[in-house]
Computed example of a mutant assay.
Amino acid sequence: MPARASLSAFLATARSALAASASKKQTLTFVVGNESADLDSLCSALLFAYLRTYGSPQTLHIPLCHLPRDDLTLRPEFTEVLRRAATSPDDVITLDDLPELDATNTQWLLVDHNCLTGHLELFNKQVVGCVDHHTDEGKVPQESEVRLIEKSGSCMSLVVTHCREAWEKLKDADKATEIDAQLAHLAVGPILIDTQKLGDKNKTTSFDEDAVQYLETKLPSATGYDRTNFFSDVAKLKGDISPLSMRDILRKDYKEWDDSGVKLGTSSVPAHFGYLTEKAGSSDALLDGIKRWGTEKDLDLVTVLTAFTNEASFHRELLLFARTEKGVATAKAFEKDYTEKLQLSPWSSGKLDLDEQSQWLRCWTQGRVENSRKQVAPMLREAMKAKI
């Protein structure tokens, strides 16, 4: 590879190579985050692809944003982090930019997940490695060159840990210091967001603390970086869902699984159900929006997980809406097995609850706030297996 370029120039090279591949039978190596396409997934894919391209093994790695291009508008926090990395959403590569691919001519490295889902599931056999902080699903071969699955607040912290030595060897660019500062902005943003500025004791690990300490050595005061201000700016953008419709709120941070004959969809929302009820106009209107989303995605079980700070305390809520008999069986199995473990109690005296043969809904306040979707989704998937 030539001397390394800025992130935006690297993305232009990757886009050109992807376009040229349509007429060539060459193997393409992709790096992709999970289908929720949150800030951590998006930024981790970009940084890992960049450092793998210019470090060892010096093979072009194409970073893919796991979402349609239109969905980028739902993520202003990503736009802000890209801006600080001297890049824009126009530069990144999305699902809409993929040409028709022969799966056998591709390789896939996963960040922030270890099993391809959604539109990319057909490439699962071409997965050659991962860096992730979720439950190991046993899909990535043990002998893979890269297979790092560890507990951390942010997947980006693991990417930085894995690539740190290679990064330090990249001293060949005329503007190495400037480029490093751009990359460090890209990396530190999701770590600060996912760990609440390293203040969330339930999430923050030594991986996160060490990564931020390292990255901030690449962010001298001359860059205008300030940890508190950076976190506040990005967090404000991430948490502001006021311009969004109910459908957009539910699809902004969405992940889906189809296991054991049950299709599960999960939406993470940075606001409480009281706010969502008020935004929708009424409880009935909120439920109608959730039901429409379940119908659009053809789900057996719709899950909405809220996370928010109220009066300086962090809170979580959880809603399950089962819209088929299979979904109802799964939801009831989850309720039986995990109510105590998650310290679930009825939200607003059961105001949103519903109990019918083919439709069932429960909304809870979640006492064990340390359990995010990263922990709750595997519980739901276990309930999917146990539904019979």
Rank of each mutant, 00 (worst) to 15 (best):
L198N: 05
E209F: 06
R227A: 05
E296I: 11
T266W: 10
A5C: 06
F334D: 04
E165L: 10
Y225Q: 11
E256A: 06
A181N: 07
L342F: 12
Q182Y: 04
A280V: 09
D253K: 10
E35L: 03
D96V: 00
I149M: 14
P141S: 13
D97Y: 01
S206W: 13
K374G: 08
D71N: 12
L64W: 02
R84V: 05
L101E: 05
V376T: 12
K297I: 02
T79E: 11
E100I: 08
K218S: 10
T330P: 03
L244K: 11
S313H: 15
M384I: 13
N371F: 15
M246T: 06
R247T: 09
Q26H: 10
H133Y: 13
K385N: 06
L219R: 09
R373Q: 14
G33A: 04
A333L: 11
A383P: 02
L116A: 03
E340I: 06
W293Q: 08
E278D: 10
D240R: 11
E35Q: 13
L244H: 11
H315W: 14
V146D: 05
F123G: 00
T205F: 13
L95S: 01
R251F: 12
K171D: 12
S260M: 09
S349H: 11
Q359F: 08
L109K: 01
G138L: 12
H119G: 01
P2K: 13
P2Y: 08
W108I: 03
P63L: 04
K326F: 14
Q357S: 08
F321C: 09
E340Q: 11
T330V: 05
V212W: 07
G199K: 12
L42F: 01
V111M: 00
L120C: 04
L116S: 01
Q213L: 13
F231I: 05
L192G: 03
E137Q: 15
Q182S: 10
N124P: 02
S144Q: 14
F78R: 00
L319G: 01
E356Y: 08
E335A: 12
D96M: 00
K252T: 03
K125P: 03
V81E: 03
K203C: 06
L7A: 01
A85Q: 05
L320V: 14
T161L: 13
E311I: 12
L60H: 00
S358K: 14
S144L: 15
E80T: 09
R84N: 11
R292M: 07
M1A: 09
K297N: 03
L82H: 02
L219E: 07
F308E: 03
Q359K: 09
L74A: 13
E256Y: 05
E325W: 12
S358D: 14
C130H: 10
Q196P: 03
L110K: 01
K151F: 06
Q366N: 07
Q107W: 05
V234I: 14
F123K: 00
D284Q: 15
E80N: 05
L354H: 03
V269S: 06
E340D: 15
S282W: 15
D233G: 04
F123L: 11
S8I: 02
G118A: 06
C115A: 13
E165R: 14
E77G: 04
D102N: 12
A103V: 15
F123W: 10
L39R: 00
L287E: 10
E80I: 02
V262S: 10
D233W: 04
P63S: 07
P68I: 00
S232Y: 07
S372E: 08
D97Q: 01
C43V: 00
T27F: 07
G129H: 09
